[in-house]
Design a protein around this nucleic acid. Structure first.
Lengths: 149, 149
DNA sequence: TCAAAAATTGAATTTTATTCAGATAGATAA
DNA sequence: TTATCTATCTGAATAAAATTCAATTTTTGA
């Protein structure tokens, strides 16, 4: 057994998919060549970043989802963009935003369970530049990435 | 001019894409038939919900992104699942979660600008079952849907 | 240890994306 | 208005890719 599954999941999380022109052609009743032209245009403009899969995260061992709010230390020379850029690179971080208001950053973190979340949280909170945080657990997801669940 | 662009965007937000087996085959050096078998298995298990596009939201007129926190009215007979299910169906709602803590629901909303967001907010807040809300604006996005920006 | 089920694979087939050149529509400027 | 340029559209040919299938190997469970 080659256990290709985890490799597929890793690739599909960020890309390795492509438009189904023939299916779109049937759906909106336009010629494939016309759709091809318009799709390439969207890609070349940079309007489309990638094509990827959306998962039932329970089924790929990422059923535990938390919104992690972070307050950065106000310190001369510290660059919030850089810190968030680094946090965004964590494998288990689904999304990373700099936000207005009481907190500076919100991360959406997906892990298998609470234990695994605690590991991620520890590794984030022990970094330089982080003052405090609060974790808001998602109890139920009705929609993600524009896809109804 | 047929203006196919908005139709493409609408379709690509939820699906109409498919795996690039040939590219994956080259990347991880496995036979296409083997990958095909493993991918179909993931799909049949329901582990993969759909294949879709990720956008540069600025470029498709959805550059304004807000996390909208909602507190539901505590009322006998009111079903949070149903309310959230309905909110999730809004076109401009990217994600919808029921959460633990001070607030009951968080929506990620993407609109063209603040004016358009205000329209969405009004239409949500005038619904039954909503007690109060707070809007947290995303100032900068470093990652969405596991895709670095 | 052995039978059944699951997973792998090369080759054939079917389907799909891509290319391209001609046509059409839209925009621009005189 | 009309001429000219550019962008968009499209059918048909080509190239590339997904899918199927039957044979093989591996894994599972009794």
């Amino acid at each position: 057994m080659k256990n290709i599954r985890p490799k597929l999941i890793r690739l599909f999380k960020v890309g390795y998919c492509t438009p189904q022109i023939a299916r779109i052609a049937k759906t909106i009743n336009e010629p494939s060549a016309t759709l091809h032209y318009n799709i390439k245009k969207l890609e070349n403009e940079g309007a489309i970043k990638t094509y990827k899969a959306v998962f039932d995260y329970e089924k790929i061992d990422e059923g535990f989802c938390v919104y992690l709010f972070i307050k950065l230390t106000a310190k001369a020379g510290a660059d919030p963009d850089q810190i968030v850029g680094e946090l965004a690179r964590y494998e288990k971080v689904d999304s990373a935003d700099i936000i207005a208001g009481e907190w500076d950053v919100v991360l959406k973190v997906r892990t298998k369970n609470q234990d695994e979340y605690y590991d991620v949280l520890k590794s984030i909170l022990t970094r330089e530049g982080i003052e405090k945080s609060t974790s808001v657990i998602s109890l139920k997801q009705a929609k993600t990435e524009f896809v109804l669940l």
